[in-house]
């Protein structure tokens, strides 16, 4: 049974926050630091190809987050097939970036959509090599199931192509993935603003990964905070149980509450309200 306050656990690591932040595209390191702080994110992702693997402490991005206790989720973005992705993952691990890897494989320069077959192949191999593999995948429920069977520590279906901000294009699929998945579902890519994050969490996602909608927002720091609140709001809303959708209006107060002829007609409105919510009022 999912509980609101239960911690997200991936590959044996318990995480405080369900929001993962990508570090790319930020306008400058001060805004990155402030956004990271405002987001409360504990897991950050970055492209291995952009990192100074020879001396990570020299890296132009990672040097600005080295004081924080963070979980690194290096990604294989730019890889065009499973071989490249596995090579990149090994470079990252050898450089001391840990054994988590976000598998990201694409060969379409226009949409950057993940290649499903290569992603599955890479996931199988990386799991065998002892990596905690989190594949970025299309929002296909069958593929997500196969990735889980291959040993993925979490699945990361995209809402829409990377950086588009189009939101969740197929909520049905995403809901199905969340329902069936035995491993955490982290919705990754394509989200535009807080409402998409709320929707993903209401659909049953366990966490969210965002980068562009924060980094390229007019005020990334404020958007980072909005994303943090949206993860919480969406998760709480999913667990609170929403009302059923109805085709027509139903008044939020009963007809007895009408101004003339109802219980409020005599005496002040405040007294009437108090009476209504008290046991006595309900019996009346």
């Amino acid at each position: 049974m999912k509980r609101y306050d239960s911690q997200l656990e991936i590959g044996g690591t318990k995480l405080r926050s369900r929001l993962f932040l990508g570090t790319g595209r930020f306008p400058n390191p001060a805004v990155l630091q402030q956004s990271l702080e405002a987001s409360g994110a504990e897991v950050i992702t970055f492209a291995v190809r952009r990192v100074n693997l020879d001396s990570v402490e020299d890296d132009s991005v990672l040097q600005h987050v080295e004081d924080r206790s963070l979980v690194y989720l290096p990604n294989t973005s730019g890889a065009g097939n499973a071989d490249e992705a596995v090579r990149i993952a090994k470079l990252a691990r050898a450089a001391g970036l840990g054994n988590w890897i976000k598998v990201e494989i694409s060969r379409d320069e226009r949409t950057l959509l993940p290649d499903p077959l290569e992603t599955l192949r890479a996931t199988e191999r990386l799991v065998r090599e002892g990596f905690v593999a989190l594949p970025y995948t299309s929002d296909d429920p069958m593929l997500c199931r196969r990735l889980e069977e291959a040993g993925a520590a979490a699945v990361m279906p995209g809402g829409a192509p990377i950086g588009t901000g189009l939101g969740i294009l197929n909520p049905y699929n995403l809901g199905l993935i969340a329902e069936q998945s035995g491993v955490p579902v982290i919705v990754d890519a394509g989200l535009g603003s807080a409402q998409d994050v709320v929707q993903a969490m209401e659909l049953g996602a366990d966490g969210i990964l965002v980068n562009t909608p924060v980094a390229k927002a007019q005020d990334p720091v404020a958007m980072a905070k909005a994303m943090r609140l949206a993860v919480e709001a969406g998760r709480l809303s999913a667990m609170a149980g929403r009302i059923p959708r109805k085709p027509y209006a139903s008044a939020s107060s009963s007809t007895e509450g009408a101004l003339f002829g109802g219980p409020y007609a005599a005496g002040s409105a405040i007294e009437g309200r108090r009476a209504e919510t008290s046991a006595e009022g309900l019996r009346r």
């Binding site: 492209a47 291995v48 190809r49 294989t76 973005s77 730019g78 890889a79 065009g80 490249e84 990149i88 694409s106 060969r107 320069e109 950057l112």
Partner: peptide
């Protein structure tokens, strides 16, 4: 510097 730099 990496083959993975080419796609972007």
């Amino acid at each position: 510097l990496h083959e993975a730099d080419m796609l972007p």
